[in-house]
Design a protein around this nucleic acid. Sequence first.
DNA 1: CGGGACATTGATTAAGATCAATTTAAGTGG
DNA 2: CCACTTAAATTGATCTTAATCAATGTCCCG
Lengths: 262, 262
Amino acid sequence: MNTAHTSARICELQNPGPPDYRSALSIPSPATCRMAAAGMCFVADLCRHTKAGIHQPFSIDTLPRRTVRRGESLYRAGDTLVNLYQLYAGSVKLRITNCAGIEQIASFPMAGALLGLDGIETGKYTCDAIALEDSLVCSLSFSDLVARSSSDAAAALRLNKAIAQETNHYRRLLMVLTSMNSEERIASFLLDISERMAASGYSPREFVLKMTREDIARHLGMKIETVSRAFTRLQISRILDVSRRHLNIRDPDALRRLGTSH
Amino acid sequence: MNTAHTSARICELQNPGPPDYRSALSIPSPATCRMAAAGMCFVADLCRHTKAGIHQPFSIDTLPRRTVRRGESLYRAGDTLVNLYQLYAGSVKLRITNCAGIEQIASFPMAGALLGLDGIETGKYTCDAIALEDSLVCSLSFSDLVARSSSDAAAALRLNKAIAQETNHYRRLLMVLTSMNSEERIASFLLDISERMAASGYSPREFVLKMTREDIARHLGMKIETVSRAFTRLQISRILDVSRRHLNIRDPDALRRLGTSH
DNA sequence: CGGGACATTGATTAAGATCAATTTAAGTGG
DNA sequence: CCACTTAAATTGATCTTAATCAATGTCCCG
């Protein structure tokens, strides 16, 4: 695999954010990776250990990586869990398909997220992980992670917390789905994206949505027309500027009032 | 604490199920405890280890237990996570309250469930765990569990799976909330209860709901009147007999058709 | 430049929320 | 034990929101 080629590909699809924000292409360094900062960077942890117990500077070159093109899946529901994946660059949707063939988008992981946790309970993934843009992941052998857990209490706790974090994410989403109307759901959704953009070093005010309206609808339990109308209404109330996937948050406070709790 | 007294109390509030079904008062034995059968009984695991590494027969007397009266909370949102709890007898609701004071019921754990997982991510619980009836739990020190994980890969994996299981539970609930109408939601909810009653040795056909309509409504993102009407409609279509909290499933197949996926 | 996926907008319908009134059951205290 | 109180549940009438149906617009890509 030609890394330079892949990088160029990935670069083409990135956000056009202001120059003072990092490009998604640049691999997170230990200093800037929010997961490393929170002591949650599994990659950094593994890198350290693979160097025979000697604490090594973070380097992506020490671990197996994989690119996933837009629309391709990193893994599929039913596949046997072998790896977890740390998402370096790009974004993904986790799709659940029930027995009736109805599809639901569980979440939209972005750079820094740990993928594959849905396979831990049974040893088989329960979701399809589909790239929303050309993306780059680092593969982490799950059995290695468990093995490391069983010799290192800090590593064990870190893995537990990573799984628990995902649970809490869904619990919050539950709250959104049971207590908010369409406009509030969209506001809440955008706030979440905005915060994660900020955490990755991008502008929290202006960004490009990587998913379709259809994906958003299936994530928030709405119909595509309702999503579209909600965007329109937020634009009319001068909270957003929306033009298809391009988004500009004009009044973050108002958005927060709408999307937080209530 | 007078165990005999507590037992009597708990007994009074149990389901009036047929005599061939186990009373909730009886403590699950290793043979009948479904979590032990699935290799997921943390209590059994700890009991073994507390006996100085010698594999001991399961006994509830070897671990600290605690009774929680109806309406009391086992823990509260914001409390520091110290213990996880395995629920032996009774049932509980996990309540989330957001900053606007809106309440949502995340789940209704029943006998066999592991409680307190919501505190793992941050070290503080995010839910209130409130007993729906007088209940009995076994306290498991979380730091002990982590310590055990870090010397025993099987224990580490078991804990990871327990957390991941909860995540998958919420993912399924998400699917229910985004793709089902009120009648289907109630059907799905009742099927879940029914299956768990069966797994605990009770009749899956006839049981008493321990929660109010209000709790069900806040769990499924509906209003109390809609819950009531859904029950009424299921009764009219001869799928259920409902009389307040008492439930009799007359046509399990029809209920399954309604509540499974779409 | 034309095809196709994606998105928006309008008109109508249906499901559930809301408002309001009873009904039922379970205590509680005289 | 019975009247009284209160919480929980049911039912009906009306209103609101979002779904549905249908048409049109727009952008991306070959």
